[in-house]
Write a protein that binds this DNA or RNA. Structure first.
Lengths: 343, 343
DNA sequence: GGCGGTACTGGTAACGATATCAGTGCACTT
DNA sequence: AAGTGCACTGATATCGTTACCAGTACCGCC
């Protein structure tokens, strides 16, 4: 009595199928790979055995053979709970699916250590490529020495000291145009809400913000600048602080959708509870569902995160399909649209 | 001259590391698995070689060895673009991460064929378990015969004819309570917006809706029932139809967040363009970001999709950790909260 | 000196799938 | 009749890894 009995609960292998169909494992393999050079009659027996045993080819075993690849793309994002990244992942998934690849998705929670661990694990699982929305604080785990020959595309954010294919939004111009719209509307006391400076989008959007101010002969007022809010709750508190100032800003630039939503909540509470102070005009980067329904002066710097994901995936597959292509990293900046004032 | 030259671009293997460190592959393997029974001095050499070559253990190769599992959980959801499912995936990911597993995420786009293909592929990649938000139209690809010994948890929706571990929301009571709130508010002409009937949540929420009507001696009015809207645009059109009726409903029950947003958009447009007709009271299943900021009468049937994902993952790991557990499928219904009327 | 134990190291054989090579049998040409 | 080509099939070796077994060296103890 052998230990490797063909117990019904064990996952069936080619050998089991072969035995069941009365052929060799090779014939099973050939049948599953298209059936070239296998008699139709034999193929039928094989398929019947496959059906009966509930056999599935072991892709992991296949992938260790030379020349064969895993068909997996590793995707590391910072916060799946943000609808923005759900759309992003959808864009990646759609393009990957077109190329016959699956995605492995990991969430870093904005933590460098988890990002590093995730990337290492992805490579161990033989992903063919990586798409990473980096926390931005460290580059070492993403260097070519660590990744070997696995191509990498950075999305949405850059990493200091790392030269890799990157797809960004036109953060600077978007922030510039949006801030300019506020200035053109007569605002001079403009506040700023943004996330931590280690994130490149925060820096770039701040840069556009300041550029517009300077161009109008204005200086950013440190008292009106709040940076470092990574979630809605923190953003709300920061906005409440600004609203509570003796001389509050008449307009706010919010650098991402978490901050925009927090700011809107703060405004909402204040309008409900306090005296009828006119709400500050808000301009926010990133789309927000239902933003157009609000009774608040609001400009949205709009873009399509799904396209961002799709573009990142396309850049990755460019390299996968043509490994000989020019090695110098490419940078793509996707356009953004500055909405018109409402409310 | 051998073909398998240790070219620098090729992914390094244990053998390469072993050669580099002047030891056998076994010693490398032992070092990487904790270093038991390997001299500290030798371990250092091994780690140095690992570092220098940028070696990563091939998890796929490991996973084909007996007794070793892949550490992967397959997650199939219907629409990653819906923030609801981003939160859901986050909940799954967090719990999986606690158990040392990664998730493979696939998007079905509400298409049965893609769901079936996805599940088959997941099994081929040796996932240890499956979490599926089913389209609900077919059960065959999810039967034990097809899945072998891979445990399955259905989330959010059921599949007719399939008995599996399932975690749902308390759809029926949620819809019942919400509809009752409308009736208690004096409404008798209540419209219904929902997605296709093949989705079990649509059926269950409709059931709760009808139950509340019947209890109050009312009948659902076919002219006010719109079902089958799977996205925001379709929901908006359906709501516009209802608003355009000669005798429009004074209240609307919306069975999910896509329909709620579409309905809100229709209301918004009408308030902007048309005469100042009072907006119908809206009650919507699923949370919507910023819903509390709107100037529209709105009740939300609220719940936490992240918890739903976490619960699904926990139910899966219950089985993985204890394969001997009672085989009969478990059903969990998570509570929902009916918000108070605002606006 | 011999014995048993322990710490360390490496050779070998699998895991599941398949590329390669070596057939076998049959039809068809010359 | 002999040769040629083709369609089909299977035995073998291999991918990267590690469990298992078989050492080897060295220690302490009688």
């Amino acid at each position: 009595m052998t230990v490797s009995g063909s117990g019904p609960s064990a996952t069936p292998t080619v050998r089991d199928v072969a035995e069941h169909a009365g052929v060799s494992p090779m014939t099973v393999s050939r049948t599953l790979s298209g059936g070239k050079n296998v008699r139709a009659e034999v193929q039928e027996k094989v398929w019947a055995a496959v059906e009966e045993l509930g056999y599935h080819r072991n892709e992991n075993a296949r992938s260790i053979r030379p020349g064969h690849s895993s068909g997996l793309i590793g995707v590391a994002i910072t916060n799946l709970g943000n609808p923005y990244y759900g759309q992003f992942a959808l864009g990646v998934e759609e393009v990957a699916s077109l190329h016959g690849r699956r995605i492995m998705l990991g969430n870093t929670g904005e933590q460098l250590a988890r990002e590093s661990q995730l990337v290492s694990d992805f490579i161990g699982r033989q992903v063919e490529g990586l798409i990473v929305v980096p926390t931005g604080e460290g580059a070492e785990h993403l260097t070519p020495g660590r990744l070997g020959s696995v191509p990498l595309v950075l999305a949405s954010r850059t990493v200091e000291g790392l030269d890799a294919d990157t797809v960004l939004l036109d953060d600077i111009n978007g922030a510039y145009e949006a801030t300019k719209a506020l200035i053109d509307g007569g605002h001079t006391r403009i506040g700023f809400l943004g996330n931590v400076l280690s994130v490149s989008t925060a820096r770039r959007r701040y840069e556009g913000f300041v550029r517009a101010l300077h161009e109008a002969g204005l200086e950013p007022d440190p008292a009106l600048i709040r940076r470092g809010q990574q979630d809605v709750a923190a953003a709300r508190r920061a906005m409440e602080e600004l609203l509570g100032l003796d001389d509050p800003p008449t307009a706010i630039f919010s650098a991402n959708n978490r901050n925009t939503i927090g700011a809107l909540q703060a405004i909402g509470t204040r309008q409900k509870d306090g005296p009828a102070i006119p709400a500050p005009t808000l301009v926010g980067f990133d789309d927000v569902e239902l933003a157009d329904m609000l009774q608040v002066p609001l400009i949205i710097v709009s873009h399509d995160p799904r396209q961002l994901g799709a573009q990142a995936a396309r850049m990755l597959f460019d390299r996968l399909d043509d490994p000989e292509m020019d090695e110098s990293p490419r940078l793509v900046e996707l356009p953004v649209t500055v909405g018109t004032l409402r409310g």
